[in-house]
Design a protein around this nucleic acid. Structure first.
Lengths: 237, 237
DNA sequence: TCGTTTTTTGAATCTGATTCAAAATATGCC
DNA sequence: GGCATATTTTGAATCAGATTCAAAAAACGA
């Protein structure tokens, strides 16, 4: 059945076309403006065809995230490759995330939106599974860094699982970003913008885990140097 | 003009009626199902009347949060009253938040939804200001606890502002909750549910700030005892 | 009581997602 | 190729539900 194989491929190509166009439209006018009919027309297909790929608008949005997550993962993989002390590597994740958040602000906002119950529930079950699957490799990478730290004797888990420790950094990143992305929130509380606050807080957390080598926050230059070192390695900026 | 005063009061009462009814409807069927026409009818008013109080559905949702935040604040105030070592008090905020999140899961999900760009932008500017204002007293309480710690010599800010340090705990709480509330996320990554993980992470963060007295996480009983102590004080459970 | 202003009403409008019967296209068979 | 059947595409019609606004009702003031 070579025929049906080709069909399958064409279908896949069309799906990518839809996603490409959606991404473009979102980049131009934000995801709130995205309209199914307009998107279909932009691709020279009927509205109904779009619904052969995505069960709903929410499903499409989540599909976008699923696809985009490859980029995200790539970043993590670059860090996994990196031969460096574990503490530098775990922090590199933060730096990379921060950079990602800056550069892909639209994507982050979309993620925040999609993880909302109102949207989540409207995506197809299959898509939700896909979305959750996307997190798995990232989790493994984080876990493996924690494991390296333990193996190298830089970190005493004190009975906690590698996931629990990885989760802590994840939650802090996540929380910082979601607060940051809420228009006017930080300004209202006169918390300085920019990544430094988050970096310092992350080091407080890592220090609190006893993750060696501890970073001395009284020496701002140390943090600056570390960040620059990491940025150079990740080819950020 | 006694007349217009009464009118003003009646208007206010009606607004509360709308909010009460909305809360009720949401409790019954979730905020996704809330419909403006249905809400108005449930209160024996026309749809248009509802729009004299709220510029949009999103504005109404945010108004709900604004009102509900009084409850939230009350909790913080109880902690502010509490005479205890600063480390216990800052952690009490976490415990209280956790409890609040458990009990008011709908409210938390709604908050998450409202802070989304798509919703945020559709509320009136005035409402957004109100919403941001709600955070102020909470911020001050957190700040004051940090300040107490510094004054008592339990915490060396190492150049950080009280807001920065308070923000760290806030971000960690926030991140933990938003991850927790995402259906299936933690399960997918086999992270144990329940508040303990968050509590432990919070203590790692506080330890990392050098906030005295440090908590020894190798002694799970210590944490348990502390949590119980706090719960007793806050009259939780 | 009556003209004027304010408030309320709810049917009409509008936006935009979703559906589905009909049309078009592809496939398999002779 | 020609034809019957199955699959896919189409886009106008449907549907949901938020929002508006002209008309009706109520309140006000003289």
């Amino acid at each position: 059945m070579g025929t049906s194989e080709r069909k399958q491929r064409e279908r896949e190509e069309r799906e990518q076309l839809f996603l490409d166009a959606a991404e473009q439209l979102i980049a131009e006018e934000g995801f709130i403006q995205l309209q199914m009919a307009r998107l279909a027309k932009a691709c020279d297909y009927a509205t109904g065809t779009l619904y052969q790929h995505f069960t709903s608008k929410e499903d499409l949005l989540m599909a976008l995230l699923v696809r985009h997550s490859a980029l995200h993962l790539e970043m993590f993989e670059r860090i996994q490759q990196w031969q460096a002390p574990s503490r530098q590597r775990i922090f590199a994740i933060c730096v990379a995330e921060q950079d990602f958040n800056q550069r892909q602000a639209n994507y982050v906002k979309l993620t925040q939106y999609v993880m909302t119950e109102a949207v989540w529930e409207n995506a197809s079950e299959a898509r939700r599974q896909q979305f959750l699957q996307c997190g798995q490799p990232i989790c493994h990478i984080v876990s493996s860094i924690v494991q390296q730290a333990i193996d190298d004797g830089d970190l005493d888990p004190q009975g906690a699982s590698t996931m629990e420790l990885g989760y802590a950094t994840w939650a802090l990143c996540q929380g910082s970003h979601s607060l940051e992305h809420t228009q006017g929130l930080l300004e209202a509380f006169s918390i300085p913008l920019g990544p430094t606050t988050m970096y310092r807080n992350m080091h407080r957390l890592l220090n609190g885990m006893g993750w060696q080598p501890l970073l001395d926050l009284t020496q701002p230059a140390e943090l600056t140097r570390l960040v620059q070192h990491i940025e150079r390695h990740l080819q950020i900026n």
